[in-house]
């Protein structure tokens, strides 16, 4: 056994085996050997691992729970459940996870989770957004958007989309907001649409320059957003039944 060199099994074969392991095992095996550590964290390995067909026994159901802590203050807990092979009982497969950065003022999440998109989920409350990897249970608070609005105006988020730009190899979040005048300083009718895009690898937001002001409003009923074929889609709130679409490579 010389200097930790893999003697028995060639490296490419080790790789083929690692690609077939569940994420939880990989989290443990990355401390076997430095080469394994850097391999399983490389973007090539991650893409290949994601593209392998999910095996049924790796699947689970994610519940978001709101637990009342004070009047008007709920904390958010995530539960990881699986269904028994024989019965239809739900049982937890790992401990609940406290989403420390998220709180809500009612028992409902402010917005339903976005995704999953290539293994990740985005959770939001009125202030914060979190990107979450259910397989590793790691999560990260996103840098808040720096784009506010002038005094006398109110900025409200109309809808959020989460997707993956396969050209730039980048997870992105898109947010459509409306800046509206607030009396007594300004008129209600002063409205402007804003669109900002968050990029995960940069952890930064940018505002799009040209936004079509005639866009219809987005419908806010559950499941009205989906990411499909490289673009986020929303139902538009008109009586014609339009669909709004945002290309994630923008």
């Amino acid at each position: 056994m010389a200097n930790g060199i893999v003697k028995k099994v060639p490296e490419d074969l080790v790789n083929s085996v690692l690609l077939r392991l569940p994420v939880k095992t990989l989290m443990r095996f990355k401390c076997v050997y430095k080469a394994w550590y850097s391999n399983v964290q490389s973007s090539t390995f991650i893409s290949l691992h994601l593209n392998r067909t999910t095996r049924v026994n790796d699947e689970f159901i994610l519940f978001t729970n709101s637990i009342k802590e004070e009047p008007n203050r709920f904390k958010v807990l995530l539960s990881f459940m699986s269904i028994d092979n024989d019965g239809d009982d739900l049982h937890p497969i790992s401990p609940d996870l406290d989403m420390l950065y998220l709180t809500t003022i009612s028992s409902n999440l402010y917005r339903r989770p976005l995704g999953p998109c290539r293994g990740l989920i985005v959770l939001t409350d009125k202030v914060n957004a979190i990107i979450f990897n259910p397989a590793t249970r790691h999560y990260r608070l996103l840098r808040p958007s720096p784009f506010g609005c002038p005094l006398g105006f109110h900025r409200s988020i109309e809808d959020v989309g989460f997707g993956f730009d396969s050209i730039a190899n980048e997870y992105k979040i898109v947010r459509v907001s409306e800046v509206q005048g607030e009396p007594p300083f300004n008129d209600f009718n002063m409205r402007e649409r804003k669109v900002d895009v968050y990029e995960l690898s940069m952890d930064s937001w940018r505002e799009l320059n040209f936004v079509e002001q005639q866009l219809p409003q987005v419908d806010r009923y559950p499941c009205s957003e989906m990411f499909y074929k490289g673009a986020s889609h929303w139902f538009g709130n008109t009586n014609m039944g339009v669909i709004l679409c945002f290309d994630m490579s923008t």
């Binding site: 930790g4 893999v6 401390c31 076997v32 050997y33 430095k34």
Partner: peptide, 8 residues
């Protein structure tokens, strides 16, 4: 199994 010595 893989005859590896830890380098951590």
């Amino acid at each position: 199994i893989f005859r590896i010595e830890s380098d951590f």
